[in-house]
């Protein structure tokens, strides 16, 4: 405990913790800003995709006039219904009406999966009509129905600014090997270099066990990372709660989730654990390398 207390005292006095905390807060703010931009871009892309789909369908229906009426009429009818659902989706997107959007998308999927368009696709050939993969459509259909039933809003990972989604995305980013490596390099280089200096000798002389300091130092580094994770979690949560917007609308819960997805709360715990493990292993490896370097320097 004595060594741990001293390490913490050293940490606060060196102002490293403040520097890292400030860096993380600024980084979190920057990522939130970027996510807001990406969310707007995603909405724009969705609009553009719906428009493109409508135009494609109009071109195709113009070509179907030459087909025999037995194929053409039901196909034209289905295409008209598809156009209606695409228009409804566009309107719902503009009005940020999640419920209406989901209803229209579900209806669109049902139409796409119905026998007529499939038969039609065989006639006109794949590529002219949307390259629908029935399995994927069915998965999305299941998810959309569940979302509609629970009132959940549509969100896309990496472009979501509401609390459960953004916080999980932020932690996922921090748990990546690259982010962990940068964090380890920052913490160890700023706080671990005493191992390469006479200060290391002084610490060793004042401890009865030669492993006492390295182990405690690692524990203190882990404690620092846990604190920083907690702080950045709080900042991400604050930003998302204060400024976060849904992609379209609907609710976003910590425990509610669509079929095939994991509840955000569980994802949060999982990413937190992953970050600690990645950082802990990286810190241990880095400290080992620094210790080896110190040993080598002594000849």
């Amino acid at each position: 405990m004595t060594v741990l207390r001293f390490e913490w005292r050293r940490l606060w006095a060196s102002r490293l913790a403040w520097g890292l905390a400030l860096t993380l807060v600024l980084l979190c703010g920057a990522v939130f800003g970027l996510t807001t931009v990406r969310q707007a871009q995603l909405r724009h892309t969705m609009q553009a995709a719906l428009t493109a789909r409508q135009k494609g369908l109009a071109v195709q229906t113009a070509m179907w006039r030459e087909l025999p009426p037995t194929v053409r009429d039901p196909a034209m009818q289905a295409a008209a219904q598809l156009q209606t659902q695409l228009t409804r989706q566009q309107r719902a997107l503009r009005q940020r009406n999640n419920r209406a959007f989901l209803q229209a998308r579900i209806r669109q999927a049902e139409l796409e999966l119905s026998p007529v368009p499939v038969a039609l696709r065989e006639v006109v050939g794949i590529g002219n009509l949307k390259a629908v993969v029935p399995a994927a459509t069915q998965t999305q259909l299941r998810q959309d129905r569940a979302c509609l039933q629970q009132g959940l809003g549509i969100e896309q990972s990496g472009s979501a600014t509401r609390a459960p989604n953004f916080v999980v995305d932020w932690l996922t980013l921090l748990a990546t090997p690259l982010a962990s490596t940068i964090a380890v390099l920052l913490v160890i280089s700023a706080w671990g270099f005493p191992q390469l200096s006479p200060q290391h000798d002084w610490m060793q002389l004042n401890l009865p066990n030669r492993w006492g300091w390295p182990v405690t130092h690692w524990l203190a580094v882990m404690g620092l990372w846990l604190l920083l994770l907690g702080l950045s979690l709080g900042v991400a949560m604050g930003l998302a709660l204060g400024l976060g917007q849904p992609l379209i609308g609907g609710t976003a819960g910590w425990l509610t989730h669509a079929p095939g997805e994991v509840a955000p709360l569980l994802q949060l715990v999982s990413e937190l654990g992953r970050s600690l493990v990645t950082f802990g292993c990286g810190a241990a490896l880095m400290m080992g390398l620094v210790a080896f370097g110190a040993h080598w320097r002594r000849g």
């Binding site: 050293r10 006095a13 060196s14 200096s197 006479p198 200060q199 002389l205 401890l207 009865p208």
Partner: peptide, 26 residues
């Protein structure tokens, strides 16, 4: 050994062992 040195030896090294951002009392 580490333990024997800890118990039996006091060593004044050069002043680079001091942490500049800590107080003497720390």
């Amino acid at each position: 050994t580490t333990r024997q040195v800890f118990k039996q030896v006091a060593y004044l090294q050069d002043n680079r062992v001091l942490y500049p951002y800590l107080t003497g009392r720390a």
